[in-house]
Every structure is written in structure tokens, then in C-alpha cells.
Amino acid sequence: MLELVDLSKKFKQNDAVKNLNMFIEKGEIIGLLGPNGAGKSTAISMLSSLIEPTKGDVRFRNKSMIKHPAPLRNVIGVVPQEIALYEDLTAEENMQFFGKIYRLRGIQLKKKIDEVLEQIGLTDRRKDIVKTFSGGMKRRLNIGVAMLHDPEIIIMDEPTVGIDPQSRNYILETVKRLNKEKQMTVLYTSHYMEEVEFLCDRIYIMDKGNLIASGTKDEIKRILSAEKTISIQADRWNDEFIEELKQNPTVNRVTVGEKEITIIIPREVNMFAAIIKMAENADVELNSVDVQTPTLEDVFLHLTGRALRD
């Protein structure tokens, strides 16, 4: 239905997005995962025709949308990364404003507002001024006003940044429900891999403007199929132990945290006994040693050598 072909954007010398290829089918929830500065927002802006790509194409129903984006604009709802609302107006007044710019009027507008307020759980706060809302409520309204014109595709740019876990769950559940009940197609951007893992059918992972992996959750995790992650926990480390791990030829990667060291080793190797021995030699008192099933975080770590979150 919607396709990005070699989409690229250069800001002066900075390649914000490089040759991004992506497709979205009707009814899917697609995740776009990447750390800050990966180029997610830039990609979304090009997709929704807000900025012009330096190179590449956005195709909707097999037509290029670069020069004539109207057909696409009519069917998308965009939830920007910032709270894009009139904070001095009430929730309802904001909805009236954003409904009116989509030519909704009178009874039709009123009904739609009631419906969306119900969906985002703000019905009893409709008369309150947005400025007085909590971060989570603002986020919900930010999503709500993008749904008034019944978009076929909703594009969300990090809709859960900076809010409490409860609001976050509420939003995730709402997105899932909209997708199930109304067959709404969703493009969900985030730097939280748990969210993307929970919501999405297919995932694209970006880093520094590049697409570094894509596919279903299982497909992506299979990237790590040749390896496994072991988590070693202790109250304190010493250099001798860390050095020993790093020197070990079977260990592919060592990441040192305050109370946790993760190492990546080939799947077939069993290092359990060896690790215990190393710890004894170096006088490190271990709390536990676990083999972990890989997460998207591990995939990102594997591909880039850095953690997803800074």
C-alpha cells in the first residue's frame, strides 16, 4: 500500500536518512526502532510529505507522492514527537479546531469528538485546559486529534516519550485495539525496543541514517541465531576478571555494566564452568550466571556495538 524507495535526506553534510527502503501493508503495525538521532523523525517527515527527500520516492497505491501528495495526506494521521496542541485551550476545543481543519462540522464533528475522547480515555477531562494535563494525558490527546478524520494509516513519532508507565501501557493498548477493531494501519516509531516488540508485526531498525535490519520479530532475532547472550551478575568487578573475559577467544563481545556483564558467545559453546573458574581466580563473587534469549536490544548491540539507549 505504502512504499519508500531509496529514500534519502541530507542536511548540509549530514546524512539524516540514507537509502531507506520500507513497505507498509494495510492493517499492519510496523515498528521503526532506533536510538536518538537515527533519522526516524526525518524518515516520517518525508513519508508524510512534510519535507522533500533529497533522493528517492514515496509511493502510495503505486503512485509517487513527492510532487502531488494530496491522496496520501487525506488518509494519514500524523502524531508528532512534540505535543502539538494549543495548551491554552481545553481538550474539546483542541479537537474542535483540528476537526474543523479537516472540514468536519456540526453533529458529525461532535459525534467524532465524543468517540475519540472515549477511545483515548479523556471523556471526563474534556472541559479542562490542556496546560493542566499530566504528560500522559497530553500525549493521549496528541494522538486523539490525529484520529478525528478517520485516517487509514496513523503514523506515531515516539508517542510515549517522557510519561509514566501507566499512561504508556494505556497508549500501547489503545494502539493495539485500534488496529484490531478498526483495521487501522500503524507506523510506530520508538527507541524503546519493548514497545516495538510488544506491538509490531514487522520491524525496521535504523541507526545513523542507515537501515540496519528489518523483518518480523523472529526473522530479526534469527540474526543472532549463531550466538547467545550470557548475563553475569555480581556486586563488584575487578579488572582482572574483565580482562580475562575479553582475552578469551570464544567470547565475541563483552559489555560491562555496574552489576552486570553481558557476553556474546557462539551458540554451541558452553562456558558456564569456565566463567565460574575465571571468577574464582580473580576473586570475584558471582551472584548469578544466566543464558538469555536474545532481545531486539541484543540485536542492536550485535549490529552496532552500542546499546539502543544512551
Partner: peptide
């Protein structure tokens, strides 16, 4: 401020 927050982008995507 409204432009930075993306409020204008919302309007630009609408028929207005």
C-alpha cells in the same frame, strides 16, 4: 513555537 512543536505540520497536512 507552534511551528517547532509540529502544530503547523498538522495544519499543513490537512486541507487547510
Amino acid at each position: 513555537v507552534e511551528k517547532k512543536d509540529g502544530l503547523w505540520d498538522r495544519v499543513i497536512l490537512s486541507p487547510v
